[in-house]
């Protein structure tokens, strides 16, 4: 079947079996390798991306559901050269170790901050349940708080 959607702001149309996981399409057909495969069972969060701004685990999301939607991957999180606050905070806190899980965490965090701009530790615990085998959780928590600060700073600097 033909599926059309926007990926990182670009319209795209593909001829693909509708039950193909969106993750496969993103990585293998669109060659966007930032989104990772971990478990394939919606259990680890490595494959998290955004569908219409909401966090979705793309390993378990059939591409047919993406019809007409706006998909954002880690490659599309920044606005041009302007890093997303989450990306900036991740660099400042030097979060990654091996790095494999990080795009998923960053996309989940960006989705969280769009709903809860200043999350508490409890909000973080409740919302960010991805898995990191290198156990970078401590630095991630710091980076999430820092990203919230950067985001509110950016919002203040925006002309109203």
């Amino acid at each position: 079947m033909t599926i059309s959607f926007n990926i990182n702001g670009q319209p795209t149309s593909l001829d693909v079996d509708g039950d193909t996981p969106l993750l496969w399409v993103v990585r293998d057909m669109l060659d966007l390798k930032g989104t990772k495969f971990g478990c394939g069972k919606a259990a680890c969060g490595a494959c998290t991306l955004h569908v219409d701004g909401k966090a979705v685990r793309s390993c378990s999301y059939a591409v047919k559901y993406a019809e007409g939607k706006n998909i954002t991957t880690i490659e599309g999180l920044s606005s041009g050269d302007q890093l997303h606050p989450v990306q900036q905070a991740w660099m400042e806190e030097i979060v990654p170790q091996c790095g494999y899980c990080q795009p998923g965490f960053m996309m989940a965090t960006a989705a969280l901050l769009s709903e809860i701009p200043n999350p508490t530790d409890e909000d973080i615990d409740n919302n960010i349940v991805n898995v990191c085998r290198c156990a970078t959780y401590y630095r991630m928590r710091k980076a999430i708080h820092r990203a919230a600060g950067l985001q509110s700073q950016t919002a203040k600097n925006q002309p109203s």
Binding site: D19, P21, G40, K41, A42, T48, K54, A55, V56, R57, C59, S60, Y61, A62, Y65, A108, T109, A111, L112, E115, I116, D123, N126, N127, I128, V129
Partner: peptide, 18 residues
């Protein structure tokens, strides 16, 4: 909750691959 909704993982049909 905000970034962990049912639809983060569950869609309108069973996904028997996952």
């Amino acid at each position: 909750v905000a970034a962990l909704q049912c639809q983060t993982c569950h869609q309108t049909e069973n996904n028997n691959h996952a």
